[in-house]
Amino acid sequence: MQGTIHVDSLTFQFQGNGENVLTDISLSLRAGEWVSIVGHNGSGKSTLAKFLNGLLIPVTGDVTILGMNTKDFNNQPLIRKKVSMVFQNPDNQLVAPTVADDVAFGLENAGVPFKEMQARVRNTIHTLGLSGLENSEPSRLSGGQKQRVALAGALVLQPEILILDEATSMLDPIGKKEVMDQVQRLRRETELTIVMITHDLNEALMSDRVIVLKEGRIVGDGPPLEVLSHSEMLADTNLIHPFIIEIMEGLKGKGYDLREVNNTIITEQELVDAIWKLKQMM
């Protein structure tokens, strides 16, 4: 599986605006990588996401998806089959009267044979923990369930790249956890390339890599713990340390460096375990 994205010197402004939304963006994503793109409102992260599946086409610069330049009109239909996108508001993505019909919607449009469609819908619903809700009305589901249905509708198309554009920002904590648990499971069990657009740095900690945008420019790029511990950069971009890093930095300031115990802490449970282990070592 290729699963790669290359962006080369991408600059973009909305017509009539006169100001760049994105300026000289260059980046490459490896196959199977989970990348979080973070930034304050207006930083350009959602605009960048629309270039990564061909919803927007560059005028200045190039975007290449799975070896296909998005400027080539002939490439665009295939790119959109290989890249699936889940947006912010699940209510805007659910179009059918039942969960099963909604998950099947994209397959019907793609002309997938009926028997194959049935099998793929059944398997994807099971994978996303939605079994038993096949005949339910999407409008009656919880926020987290709705977003999992939207995620199922994206995954049933068997994409190589999944883009989550603020996909948890309208959910309550339970709904956020439902969706993020599924994303983490996908990351463990598949070679899917995941691009997550988010302003939630606690979610970004779970990814392999974090890219920080400010006013349409990349100002940070690297492993989550390294990037999200950079106090000056976060302050400059109006972002706040994730809770876990805030605790770790506070303890480090008092002479207790949890990275000596575990240098890959990303969950609260791992934080608690590291504190307990450090206490035993004292």
Results as ranks from 00 to 15, higher is better:
residue 66 L to A: 10
residue 230 H to R: 15
residue 244 I to F: 02
residue 106 G to Y: 04
residue 212 V to R: 10
residue 243 F to T: 09
residue 261 V to E: 01
residue 277 K to L: 11
residue 119 A to I: 12
residue 102 D to P: 08
residue 174 I to H: 13
residue 95 V to A: 11
residue 14 F to P: 06
residue 225 L to W: 07
residue 71 K to M: 05
residue 134 E to G: 12
residue 104 A to F: 08
residue 215 E to D: 15
residue 1 M to E: 12
residue 259 R to G: 00
residue 83 V to L: 05
residue 141 L to G: 02
residue 120 R to S: 06
residue 118 Q to S: 10
residue 34 W to Y: 15
residue 196 M to I: 01
residue 211 I to V: 15
residue 181 D to Y: 08
residue 273 D to F: 02
residue 206 M to R: 14
residue 257 D to C: 01
residue 227 V to A: 07
residue 61 G to H: 12
residue 209 R to E: 05
residue 238 N to F: 02
residue 163 I to C: 03
residue 119 A to G: 07
residue 104 A to Y: 09
residue 193 T to L: 04
residue 69 N to R: 14
residue 257 D to S: 03
residue 156 V to W: 11
residue 79 I to R: 08
residue 102 D to E: 12
residue 35 V to D: 07
residue 97 P to I: 11
residue 243 F to S: 15
residue 28 S to M: 08
residue 25 I to G: 07
residue 199 H to E: 02
residue 166 E to M: 02
residue 257 D to H: 04
residue 184 Q to E: 12
residue 198 T to R: 03
residue 247 I to K: 15
residue 25 I to P: 06
residue 178 E to M: 15
residue 279 K to I: 04
residue 115 K to N: 14
residue 271 L to A: 10
residue 246 E to V: 03
residue 275 I to V: 03
residue 83 V to P: 01
residue 101 D to A: 14
residue 89 N to V: 04
residue 122 R to F: 10
residue 199 H to M: 00
residue 170 M to C: 02
residue 202 N to P: 08
residue 71 K to C: 03
residue 13 Q to E: 15
residue 207 S to G: 14
residue 120 R to V: 00
residue 226 E to N: 06
residue 181 D to M: 07
residue 234 L to A: 09
residue 77 P to D: 05
residue 178 E to K: 13
residue 47 T to A: 01
residue 135 N to P: 04
residue 144 G to E: 07
residue 65 I to Y: 06
residue 130 L to G: 10
residue 33 E to S: 10
